[in-house]
């Protein structure tokens, strides 16, 4: 067990726990909500983000500075974790961090689609996944979506992407491609995972994430009333819905809500579901889903401390922090009131 190159959860978890203790808490958010972009940048300079703010401070200012610093710090944190981890733990974390590969490819494809310039796409990439810098730069150099698809040949996104590209050519919307990327990521997550005592919780958590994503997609479809087949959006691997169930439930939001309420997530989500039924606000429900997922992951970390769960919980919390700060900065810039911004935050 202690051979060189073996798993080292003790070391990684100790560091990760220290890092998650340094995340912003409720009180700091309350302060941030009352600040302007320049003050937020100043506040960040005195926190974990010092290095990034100093490095980028001469080139950018205001909300741009905050955003670049956030993305860069996120990538740095996750690359740190990968650097610490060895053996099996590395494999489990890398598997999860591939979501940034999916995110990066989606960002690049969207950039080409909306004809954004290369620099602004580059700034939005989070270089934390499995693709190295050179490969990402090659993807960035692509000028058409077809080139991107070609260059992804041989990666885990390869399989469904060709078909999705044909669909894209027929319909002219990006949805099939983004969907194919998401599905490739989620299907690879659980594929070939050796389940034993230590990874049982990891799998449970991943299943919850897939379930929540399916539920969210179904609700969005039900609300939008668009004529899209929900089965196209179904992600395999969850334990709550099957593909056919989701198709029928998407037509009937009330039944969908009842189904979630009866499931094992019912307790955690009961407040969110009440809100959904009374106020019919989908945004509130999505926030509640996110904070329920956060809480779920956090709980798992305490049940089995020497597993990958604390790391996953940290990754999720860190991402949420970055989202929150970005929402505050963007909200202040757009002149939203403090209450409105506070509603946008997911605070644990």
């Amino acid at each position: 067990m202690s051979t060189a190159g073996g798993s080292n959860p003790e070391y990684v978890n100790a560091r990760v726990r220290a890092r998650s203790a340094a995340l912003f808490d409720e009180e700091e958010y309350r302060k941030l909500v009352r600040m302007g972009p320049a003050e937020i940048a100043r506040f960040m300079e005195e926190s974990e983000y010092e290095e990034e703010i100093n490095a980028l401070g001469s080139r950018f200012s205001g909300v741009d500075l905050i955003e670049f610093a956030l993305n860069r710090n996120l990538a740095k944190q996750f690359n740190d974790i990968l650097k610490w981890a060895d053996g099996r733990l590395y494999d489990l974390i890398a598997r999860y961090l591939r979501k940034f590969d999916a995110w990066n490819v989606k960002t690049i494809v969207r950039g080409i689609y909306s004809e954004a310039d290369k620099e602004s796409v580059d700034a939005d990439l989070i270089r934390a996944g499995e693709f190295d810098d050179r490969f990402l730069d090659r993807l960035l150099d692509a000028t058409t979506i077809e080139e991107v698809v070609e260059r992804l040949d041989g990666t885990m996104f390869d399989a469904g992407l060709e078909q999705a590209y044909e669909d894209y050519e027929d319909s002219g919307v990006l949805v099939p491609i983004e969907n194919a990327l998401d599905r490739a990521y989620y299907e690879n997550l659980l594929d070939g995972l050796v389940v034993d005592e230590a990874t049982e919780q990891y799998r449970e958590y991943l299943e919850a994430e897939i379930d929540f994503r399916n539920a969210r997609n179904a609700l969005r479809l039900a609300r939008s009333g668009a004529d899209i087949d929900p089965a196209d959006y179904y992600i395999e691997g969850g334990s709550l819905f099957s593909a056919t169930e989701l198709v029928t439930l998407a037509q009937n939001p009330d039944e969908l809500v009842a189904k979630i309420r009866d499931s094992k997530y019912g307790d955690e989500l009961s407040n969110a579901l009440d809100e959904l039924e009374s106020a019919s606000s989908l945004i509130g429900f999505e926030r509640a889903l996110e904070s329920a997922l956060l809480e779920y992951a956090d709980g798992l970390g305490y049940v089995f401390p020497l597993s990958v769960s604390p790391v996953v919980s940290y990754i999720l919390a860190k991402e949420q922090e970055v989202d929150n700060i970005r929402a505050i900065a963007r909200g202040r810039e757009a002149g939203l009131s403090e209450d409105e911004i506070e509603q946008e935050l997911v605070i644990q």
Binding site: Y11, N13, A14
Partner: peptide, 10 residues
């Protein structure tokens, strides 16, 4: 191992 991790952070 855990102590080294904690010391590295703080």
């Amino acid at each position: 191992a855990a102590a080294m991790g904690a010391i590295a952070e703080d």
